[in-house]
């Protein structure tokens, strides 16, 4: 079977790092900025960045509805930090008019761990990632206030939920793409492969 094609939403954020991590996890990685580019990928990463900026640009350039439609239809999707916010069905404290793609029944709090001076690194055990804990890089990171019954909590830090999966949608508060450890991207790439085979991992 050929390698899965995984897009990285390239409106703003650390796109390059995700492209590198996905390629290291044996996917064909490409940036996605237009609806026709979205139509060509088997899965999508929504990167870290500014959630307000990414949300605005997605609406402005006609990507929000196609994104929602594909996520609803079960396309595997992985969001880090701002990407996690984009995948939340609800934001606790949205800026006026801030829209999300949704896909995970959870409520997120933006910048929950604080401003940049509070940004930190910590080891995080992630369910489904074997071996050593993942090096969690948290940058003005959100956390998940609560999840619905169908969402599974994959990791916590300091009593707060920082990684969640619901079906084909995966989200982390932290940035594995900044670490050179590609295990979380491998987990996602495996999800995309399983989806292409018509099974759920």
């Amino acid at each position: 079977m050929t390698a899965p094609v995984i897009g990285v939403l390239a409106l703003q954020g650390d796109v390059r790092e995700h492209l590198v991590a996905l390629a290291a996890a044996d996917a064909v990685a490409r940036p996605v900025r237009r609806p026709e580019e979205l139509a060509e990928v088997d899965g999508l990463v929504i990167p870290g960045g500014e959630s307000t900026t990414i949300s605005k640009l997605a609406v402005l350039f006609g990507l929000m509805e196609p994104l929602r439609a594909r996520v609803r239809a079960g396309m595997p999707v992985y969001g880090t930090c701002a990407g996690m916010i984009m995948l939340a069905d609800k934001i606790l404290d949205p800026r006026s008019g801030q829209e999300t793609v949704g896909g995970i029944d959870m409520i997120v709090r933006r910048n929950a761990f604080g401003r940049q001076n509070e940004s930190f690194e910590a080891a995080v055990e992630v369910k489904g990632v074997s071996g050593e804990p993942v090096e969690g890089v948290f940058i003005r990171a959100p956390w998940v206030e609560s999840v619905g019954a169908s969402a599974e909590v994959l990791a916590e830090h300091g009593g707060h939920i920082v990684a969640v999966r619901q079906g084909n949608a995966l989200a982390t508060s932290f940035h594995p793409e900044l670490t050179g450890d590609h295990r979380v991207h491998r987990l996602f790439t495996d999800m995309v492969r399983a989806d292409r085979r018509g099974e759920s991992l």
Partner: peptide, 23 residues
């Protein structure tokens, strides 16, 4: 839940912040 020594102000956290501003 792992809580061993969260570290603030690391080079990775500082440079990583700028990575989030790209584009």
């Amino acid at each position: 839940s792992e809580n061993q020594g969260p570290e603030t102000g690391t080079a990775r956290v500082k440079r990583g912040m700028a990575e989030q501003l790209k584009g």
